[in-house]
């Protein structure tokens, strides 16, 4: 079974600064790592590969240094990795990112299952997985927490819904996003990590992917971030004074006034 796992490289520590001129996020000098929710997708992909004697290819859209995360993914057990990198991709929103991923997967050709994490810890959109499914024109299921049966033609799995769980059968090829309940990602081996450091990472740019630069990046993205700012903590908080009895009385009074209760 040919499995494709899409990952994102994110800041290892979420420490944010804003470039006052461009409004762009500056996270320079901060260590970068595989987006933690993507590790569940990677683990599940590697388990499927081990079970089916298949192959796992990892994809990411990012700058040249994102190849470190792809190498790490190989250290975990992925067979192959492709970095989708082009100055034209910079500033891509979720729509444009999924378009680039879809083009890459089409270029790879044969695939059975694409796995994505639930969302990234920086952008927190959770949109690329479902958008990729639609862009590829294949079935899609979100928030999968268990794979029950994996056949040549279809996959049976449990997904988390707002009310509980749903058992769903999906024809292959398809795309799924997974949640952390699906597995416990393995710890990679030292030999695997060391060998992966020497792995050659394929890089595809816009031209190689057959992408018109105008359709991706800042220019081609439907959405645009017009402003980034730190949240204003409404520090009009009121400290209720007195003994517990009177504190509780004041609170109930205020909650009534604001119709919170």
């Amino acid at each position: 079974m040919n499995v494709i796992v899409c990952i994102k490289q994110v800041p290892a520590k979420i420490k944010i600064e804003i470039d006052p001129k461009t409004s762009a996020l500056a996270s320079g000098g901060v260590d970068r790592a595989i987006n933690p929710p993507d590790l569940y997708a990677l683990e599940e992909g590697i388990r499927i590969k081990e079970k089916t004697k298949g192959k796992v290819t990892v994809l990411t859209v990012g700058p040249a240094k994102a190849d470190e995360s792809l190498k790490e993914a190989i250290g975990y057990g992925a067979d192959d990795a492709v970095l989708l990198s082009d100055p034209a991709f910079e500033g891509s929103d979720t729509w444009a990112t999924s378009l680039v991923l879809a083009k890459a997967i089409r270029k790879i050709g044969q695939f059975d299952l694409v796995l994505c994490g639930k969302q990234s810890i920086d952008g927190e959109t959770g949109q690329v997985g479902p958008m990729l499914g639609e862009a590829l024109g294949v079935p899609f299921v979100s928030l999968v927490n268990r794979i029950d049966e994996l056949g040549q033609e279809s996959i049976k799995m449990m997904r988390m819904s707002d009310e509980g769980h749903q058992l769903i059968e999906m024809t292959l090829p398809g795309v799924i996003t997974v949640v952390k309940e699906i597995n416990v990602p393995r710890i990679p081996s030292l030999r695997g990590l060391m060998a992966a450091k020497k792995a050659a990472i394929t890089v595809w740019n816009a031209r190689e992917l057959g992408i018109d630069p105008a359709t991706v990046g800042m220019a081609g993205s439907p959405t645009r971030v017009s402003r980034v700012f730190f949240p204003q903590r409404a520090s009009q908080g009121e400290m209720l004074q007195g003994d517990p009895e009177s504190q509780v009385e004041q609170l109930v009074e205020r909650l009534r006034q604001t119709r919170a209760i």
Binding site: R186, I187, P188, S189, L190, R191, G192
Partner: peptide
């Protein structure tokens, strides 16, 4: 077992005996 599968138990063993 987890340390073993991540090769930590190989660290101090010579290479000719499957170590690192």
């Amino acid at each position: 077992k987890e340390m073993a599968s991540s090769d930590l138990l190989r660290v101090f063993i010579p290479e000719e005996y499957d170590g690192l």
